[in-house]
Design a protein around this nucleic acid. Structure first.
Length: 658
DNA sequence: CCTTGCGACTCAGAAACGTTTCC
DNA sequence: AGGAAACGTTTCTGAGTCGCAAG
């Protein structure tokens, strides 16, 4: 529990904004995976940042129609609730009950106010109005004011955002102590709406190198403890009051420490690759074991391996949302159907619904039926003789450090690498990226990474479709132009005479009208602007009739478009030739293709979140090798922070295999 | 020995924020 | 040209996993 070595420690240096000194290439060092216990030898940092004290606004809420005065402590809590008024939380009785219980506890009973006892009589809208006005004010701030705020933020990051670990500068992840708020659990969390209290320095433990200068707690305060434990990676910790969970300040994702454990994680998954066949063979054999516990374990392992389910630890009933993983599945979560079909329907991590219909091996199906025979209630555990500790203990007999979650990593990366084989070798960069994202999506679906559909999804989709139709409209006109230029083509190239799909008469008319309106708008604006200019030059305004003439022209143009569309006889400019128009069509075709690709991707991404698998499950070396092999710039698939996080993975050969 | 709770870490989606694109 | 919508990135913090020690 102490530092092995007392390295010389530098005083935390002034930031030199210049290029950082030599990048430390830990992955080239002797002991790239680290030895597992000692995480650092020296550690310097500036502690944590506490949110500013509450500043009362003195806007009064109403109780039973009358304004009430609240002491700052209560006002703050009322304000948290007011800020939630436009969210669905306030529709949730649990949220309201928990809030109201904690809110009442902050009220000063000696007050001259009437006692606040009935939640229904509370009216927080005056505070919400105030919050909205404040928001407006912030939006309307001058450039200078905004700049000032930005600089203050930067200064904070400068001070707390970095530490020195073994003398090397590293980014700190969450140096801000979490501000007080109303706890918002995911799903049906029994404690949602409870007051998460302000964290005091007296609750915070600092972990720092022995030789380093201990950061000052805020004036008038002291730290809970200062320790020097180099077997852990955190810089500070405290206990949160709602669930009594421990919170930590860790380093950022691009730090060497996190990079090393990422590397280790993927190497572990690659190790599994070599023995997965044996493990599969074994659990298939165990499917028919006489001992129920072993049969159950084999069946559970089948799910973990084939469906990438999470282990499924036990949860505290009544204190957390009711969610499950593999080992905690209950009979109510599966439905068996003839043909070895299993329907899964349960809430997983973050209360994300897992719905899947799978055709399983015959013996798996038989086992499930067998387990079912002994059930007394749907609420009973499917695998009542299996738990995660035991399952993981079994797994670790195959390989040091093998646990259920390694299967998720292994299967994700393996699936990804397999899916990438569908990359079109001679396709454009865009098409290759589409294939990459498709592979990514397969992994996200496997891991059930979901996101809520954006409110404007349908809107966005319609706009893309209109964009495609507009292009098709252009193409339709170009094709007609070709035929007008050379009527003989009608026979030679019958496709030129075919109507564009998805382009109804009605839509065309509307579109032509839309073009007309746009043009008219443009003309009116130009007219106004010209007049202003003339005025400033001391000239008289242009006559209205001039504008009206132009507007009429626009109307004429619409009629012309409509006529041309119906007769197929186009007015052709002298300079146009069949070849030129042909080239134009080609260009439009290209654009249609591109827009169609974005449409397809958007649709496929509607409820699937690609980020989590990209960040946590897919070995970045697969992506890097793919980029090199297919000549795709790496920044097309990894943004700045991902490139930074995955520095260690960027130097693989194009033939590297997971 | 098994069970339970704690501690430390990874993984998770939403919200906030900043930038680009579109009209 | 300028404001809104869309899009991409970052931040936030809750929710898991899993090892370990204590009972």
């Amino acid at each position: 529990m102490s530092e092995k070595k007392k390295g010389k420690q530098k005083v935390v240096k002034e930031e030199s904004d210049e290029e950082d000194d030599e990048e430390y290439r830990w992955w080239e060092a002797e002991n790239a995976k680290g030895d597992g216990t000692v995480k650092w030898n020296t550690l310097e940092h500036n502690g944590v940042y506490f949110p500013p004290e509450y500043v009362p606004h003195n806007v009064k809420m109403k109780y039973d129609g009358k304004e009430v005065h609240l002491e700052p402590e209560a006002e703050e809590v009322a304000t948290f609730y007011a800020a939630a008024l436009n969210t669905e939380h306030v529709e949730n009785p649990t949220f309201n009950e928990n809030f109201f219980r904690d809110f009442k506890a902050t009220l000063d009973n000696s007050d001259k106010n009437p006692p606040i006892e009935d939640f229904k009589k509370c009216d927080f809208t005056p505070i919400l109005d105030h919050l909205e006005r404040e928001k407006e004010k912030r939006k309307a701030m001058s450039k200078e004011e905004k700049q000032k705020l930005k600089e203050e933020k930067l200064q904070l990051e400068e001070k707390y955002g970095y530490c020195y670990l073994d003398g090397r500068k590293q980014k700190v992840g969450n140096f801000r102590i979490e501000p007080p708020s109303l706890f918002r659990g995911r799903g049906k969390h029994p404690k949602t709406g409870s007051l998460k209290l302000r964290v005091q320095p007296e609750q915070v433990t600092i972990n720092i190198g022995k030789a380093a200068k201990v950061p000052e707690p805020p004036a008038g305060h002291s730290w809970n403890k200062v320790i020097h434990d180099n077997t852990v990676t955190w810089l500070a910790t405290w206990k949160e009051n709602v669930n009594e969970n421990i919170k930590y300040v860790f380093l950022a994702a691009n730090s060497t420490l996190k990079g090393q454990s990422d590397f280790k994680k993927f190497e572990k998954a690659r190790e599994l690759k070599d023995i997965v066949a044996k493990i599969r063979h074994d659990y298939n054999k165990d499917m028919t074991n006489k001992v129920t516990a072993i049969r159950q374990r084999a069946t559970a392992m089948y799910f973990i391996d084939r469906l990438a389910l999470r282990a499924g630890n036990e949860k505290k009933e009544g204190e957390e949302a009711d969610t499950v993983g593999c080992c905690s599945l209950r009979f109510e979560h599966i439905r068996l159907e003839a043909g070895n079909t299993v329907h899964f329907d349960f809430l997983g991590k973050d209360s994300i619904r897992y719905q899947n219909t799978v055709t399983v091996d015959g013996q798996v199906f038989k086992n499930l039926k067998l387990f079912q025979r002994h059930k007394e209630s749907d609420k009973d555990q499917l695998f009542d003789r299996v738990n995660t500790q035991e399952l993981n203990k079994h797994l670790s007999s195959y390989m040091d450090g093998l646990t259920a979650k390694v299967f998720r990593t292994y299967n994700a990366s393996h699936t990804f690498q397999e899916q990438l084989k569908n990359t079109p070798v001679s396709g454009s960069v865009n098409e290759k990226i589409l294939a990459y994202n498709r592979a990514n999506r397969e992994v996200a679906i496997l891991c059930n990474h979901q996101r809520t559909v954006s409110k404007t999804f349908d809107n966005q989709m319609n706009r893309i479709e209109d964009k495609i139709r507009a292009l098709k409209y252009q193409k339709m006109r170009l094709k007609k132009t070709m035929l007008t230029l050379d009527p003989k083509l009608k026979k030679k190239r019958p496709e030129l005479d075919e109507p564009e799909s998805d382009l109804g008469e009605e839509w065309c008319e509307e579109y032509e009208k839309h073009l007309e309106e746009k043009e008219k708008d443009r003309l009116r604006k130009k007219f106004e602007k010209d007049n202003e200019k003339r005025k400033s030059e001391g000239k008289g305004p242009l006559s209205e009739s001039e504008l009206n003439e132009q507007l009429e022209e626009a109307e004429e143009k619409t009629k012309q478009l409509s006529k041309e569309r119906k007769t197929g006889k186009m007015e052709v400019k002298k300079s146009q030739t069949v070849e030129k128009v042909e080239a134009q069509i080609e260009k439009v075709n290209e654009r249609i293709k591109v827009v169609n690709l974005t449409k397809v991707e958007k649709e496929e991404n509607k409820t699937t979140a690609l980020g989590t698998s990209k960040i946590n499950y897919i070995d970045p070396r697969i992506s890097a090798a793919w980029c090199y092999k297919h000549d795709v710039p790496i920044d097309k698939i990894f943004n700045k922070s991902l490139r930074d996080k995955f520095k260690w993975a960027m130097e693989v050969d194009k033939n590297w295999k997971f």
